[in-house]
Design a binder for these strands. Structure first.
Lengths: 149, 149
DNA sequence: CATAATTCCGAGTTAGTTACTCGGAATTAA
DNA sequence: TTAATTCCGAGTAACTAACTCGGAATTATG
């Protein structure tokens, strides 16, 4: 039940883009330095995110990436699902029903995995990049205030 | 974000014990045949569950395993945590704080993993083996009724 | 126009983990 | 005494995660 680095790095990198939303394209190099993620690995992740339509790229010098939508419209769940595949604690509760076993109609453990899946998806689909930015700024303010005292 | 076979098989096997709670020891062979889990592998899982105190063993011929507590008092979460380790989507939200990074106080992605962790634990800690048995019997009754019509 | 900064692409690699298997010792009911 | 069982430690094969690498294509800038 661990998230892989793909999901974690992906959310972090997308948050980095969200904080700088509206300031033109941000390069992988910048993000990788700021967030301590290896450059070529981040490149890979961004390839997936671009193909999925969550970010757009600008090639060439001074190029980089920007969010394809307003931060409010990108949920953490969107990012994680692109990078980790469909979120389901077991295959038998995947969105596509191709891994159903023959006793699924009577299977009580499956009911648990269903509940678990839904609860996970609820959490990650309720948080947008904009929410993250808001929280981040609130934390920064609180910290500034604490130092002031 | 997948559960391993340990967690899945473990819950299934414990459910099998719960259904037969009060009927004396159940052997690994029986369970493995009923639940389609390899015998020596299940043996391994039961070793962990026994060491964790969730089941008791009776050795020798006609021996087997029984739940160490009433099914009501064993939650799915207890089983999963024994077999999969502490449930946390990332190391930085582990129960023990040994994997905290230095910016955890200001990290907004960590807040998400915390929410996720709690939501997962809420689900698996609210369901007991007794609940599973109840649901199972309800399903059996419904099915019987359906066939009757 | 040349150069440097970038994205884009496909492939390769290494270390760790998962999901097992296996052999045999110890225990106990029949 | 035998057969059925748990108990234990070790071994292994396949898979996956988490990267790296080399170089081609694109484009702003001097």
């Amino acid at each position: 039940m661990k998230l892989s680095t793909k999901g974690r790095y992906g959310v972090t990198a997308m948050f980095d883009l969200a904080v700088r939303y509206g300031q033109g394209p941000i390069s992988i190099k910048e993000i990788s330095e700021r967030q301590f993620i290896s450059e070529p690995y981040l490149e890979q992740l961004f390839a997936s995110l671009r193909k999925a339509g969550l970010i757009s790229s600008i090639r060439g010098a001074q190029g980089g990436y920007i969010l394809a939508y307003h931060p409010e419209d990108i949920k953490v769940g969107d990012i994680i699902r692109v990078l980790e595949g469909p979120i389901a604690p077991t295959d038998c509760v995947n969105e596509d029903d191709s891994f159903l076993c023959e006793k699924s109609n009577i299977c009580v453990t499956r009911d648990i995995w269903l509940k678990l899946r839904d609860s996970i998806n609820d959490v990650i689909d309720e948080i947008s990049l904009a929410d993250m930015v808001d929280n981040y700024e609130k934390k920064l303010n609180n910290k500034a205030y604490m130092y002031y005292i």
